[in-house]
């Protein structure tokens, strides 16, 4: 089995479309996690908010004082850690998807406009992109959330704005490259308008780089959401998200580490598997582009 070091050191093998072992595992883990998130209400042994004050801080299965069916132990209010982690995963993934879609819509639209309309419009958009890259976004997110208060709507918007500039750069570059190709020139010559060209000829060719970028952004947004929730500015208690579980459980790290370890392990698994899936998708996308 290939180790992580192998993957990092591995030269980009063009034309390598089938996943290797690590990628297969990552794909399987990602699929499993998404499945678990989708069906959390069916899988979770308990309600995520259901407290049992008399069985607080019980350890996971296999330890002394284990409380039956609480496989990953209970937290500081006697809630089931596994159930909370599954629902936390569900909420974190939902937020990440919503954020990534918003980023895609904003970034994709602006990138498309910048690519098709040159002049001051393009300059303005690309200046915004540069600004976004220059500013450490976690700080901006903290500022926005502490000013506006943390509710789910604000949080999703913040997560959406987090990565839009990457989409914008990719889309603009692709549009630029495609514009020089004969079939687009032919469309222009035949009298097609910019909207027609954009939707019929440009967008279909953007799908694969965007899918790759979407996947990579997803894991970044998971991290950002977890960071914000860890700091108490994201998802508010009692709702669990992976980050808020780690944040609220950190006082119990020496005495009841399972409260933190379960959601932390899920964050690692999730971001790692999604990231590797993204890499694999990028490899495949490269191949397609070369074959054209």
């Amino acid at each position: 089995m290939a180790s992580l070091a192998d993957i990092v050191a591995r030269p980009r093998r063009k034309g390598h479309a089938t996943p290797d072992v690590v990628q297969k595992i990552a794909l399987a883990v990602a699929a499993l996690l998404i499945f678990a998130a989708l069906f959390a209400p069916l899988i979770a042994p308990f309600e995520p908010l259901q407290q049992s004050l008399l069985s607080r801080l019980r350890p996971p299965i296999g330890f002394d004082r284990y409380s039956p069916w609480h496989f990953a132990g209970t937290d500081e209010l006697g809630r089931d850690v596994l159930s909370r982690a599954l629902f936390g995963l569900r909420l974190t993934l939902t937020l990440a998807f919503a954020g990534a879609v918003i980023g895609l819509l904003i970034g994709g639209t602006l990138g498309l406009i910048a690519g098709l309309v040159s002049g001051w419009v393009e300059d303005t958009i690309m200046a915004l992109v540069d600004m976004q890259i220059a500013i450490p976004f976690t700080l901006v997110a903290l500022l926005v959330l502490s000013l506006l208060g943390s509710n789910i709507t604000v949080l999703v918007l913040v997560l959406g704005i987090a990565g839009w500039e990457q989409y914008a750069r990719i889309v603009r570059a692709e549009v630029r490259r495609l514009s020089a190709l004969p079939f687009i020139e032919a469309a222009w010559t035949a009298g097609a308008g910019p909207v027609y060209v954009a939707t019929r000829h440009v967008l279909p060719n953007l799908v694969s780089p965007l899918v790759v970028q979407f996947t990579l952004a997803l894991s970044n947004i998971v991290i950002l959401e977890s960071t914000l929730s860890f700091l108490g500015l994201g998802v508010q208690p009692p709702q669990p998200s992976l980050g808020s579980m780690v944040g609220l459980g950190r006082d119990y790290m020496p005495t009841a580490p399972w409260i933190v370890l379960t959601p932390a392990a899920l964050i690692v698994l999730l971001t790692f598997s999604v990231q590797i899936t993204g890499d694999w998708l990028r490899d495949r996308a490269d191949v397609r582009l070369r074959e054209r």
Binding site: L49, Q50, Q51, L53, E76, L77, G232, Q236, P237, P238, L248
Partner: peptide
């Protein structure tokens, strides 16, 4: 914060729809 969350459960048991604001 722990007491607040526990109180919300006690409220719920008596039929009160409570919500913690942190």
């Amino acid at each position: 914060l722990l007491a607040a969350q526990a109180i919300m459960e006690m409220w719920a048991a008596a039929g009160i729809n409570g919500k913690v604001q942190v």
